[in-house]
Simulated assay, not measured.
Amino acid sequence: MSACLLGKRVRYDGGSLSVNDQVVARWMSEGRVVSVCPEVEAGMSIPRKPAEILASSGEDVLEGGVDVIEKGGNIVTDNFIEGASIALGLCRKFNIKVAVLAEFSPSCGSSAVYDGSFSGVKNPGMGVTAALLRKNGVQVFSQYEIVEAEKAVHSTNG
């Protein structure tokens, strides 16, 4: 699960996106949650400049044709790919089949990400971590899909 959704202050702006949900609380009490912030795991700072995928999505970043850029133009693609790889490693280590990740993030977005213009415009698609996890058989949900994630956990025992 995205660390920011668990109240950890790891977002680019030093904030969190805490999810107050009974299902998540139960998962926590059952020891079913592994927390990760791919960007922080890859060595990026808190706070850090906002980053967006340039006019595309995480699938294209993984294929090598598109970059993740910080506001101001610094290319941080390698950090995002490294963070995604670390998250995938955790899924493999703990046999995780279901992930709940922060929507719209260039790492964790599962249905849409910001378009690289830093103007609040979103494109359909996934972030780099969400794309890598899905490519490797992990079901990815956003914080708005906890009920669906809970059903997936029961159907996969993940």
Rank of each mutant, 00 (worst) to 15 (best):
K49T: 09
K49L: 15
P50Y: 05
A51R: 01
A51V: 05
A51K: 03
E52I: 00
E52V: 01
I53G: 02
L54K: 15
L54W: 07
A55C: 12
A55W: 08
S57N: 15
S57H: 13
G58H: 04
E59N: 14
V61S: 09
L62H: 05
L62T: 05
E63G: 12
G65D: 11
D67P: 08
D67T: 05
V68A: 12
V68E: 10
V68W: 06
I69N: 08
K71P: 02
V76S: 11
V76I: 09
V76K: 15
D78L: 04
N79R: 14
E82N: 10
G83L: 05
S85V: 02
I86C: 09
I86T: 10
I86H: 07
A87Y: 03
L88V: 09
G89A: 13
G89D: 06
L90S: 01
L90F: 06
L90R: 03
C91T: 10
C91Y: 01
R92K: 15
R92C: 05
K93L: 14
F94Q: 10
K97S: 13
V98H: 05
V98N: 06
A102W: 00
A102D: 02
A102L: 14
E103G: 07
S105Q: 08
P106E: 04
P106M: 05
S107Y: 02
S107C: 11
C108Q: 10
G109I: 02
G109V: 01
G109C: 03
S110T: 14
S111M: 07
Y114K: 02
Y114G: 00
D115C: 03
G116F: 00
F118D: 04
K122V: 13
K122T: 15
P124F: 13
P124A: 13
V128R: 00
A130K: 00
A131C: 11
L133G: 03
L133Q: 05
R134E: 13
R134H: 01
R134F: 02
K135V: 00
N136C: 08
G137D: 07
G137V: 08
V140D: 03
V140G: 03
V140K: 04
F141K: 07
S142V: 00
Q143Y: 09
Q143A: 13
I146C: 12
I146Y: 13
I146P: 11
E148D: 14
E148N: 12
E150N: 15
E150G: 08
A152S: 15
A152D: 10
A152F: 12
H154Y: 12
H154G: 07
S155R: 15
T156A: 07
T156K: 13
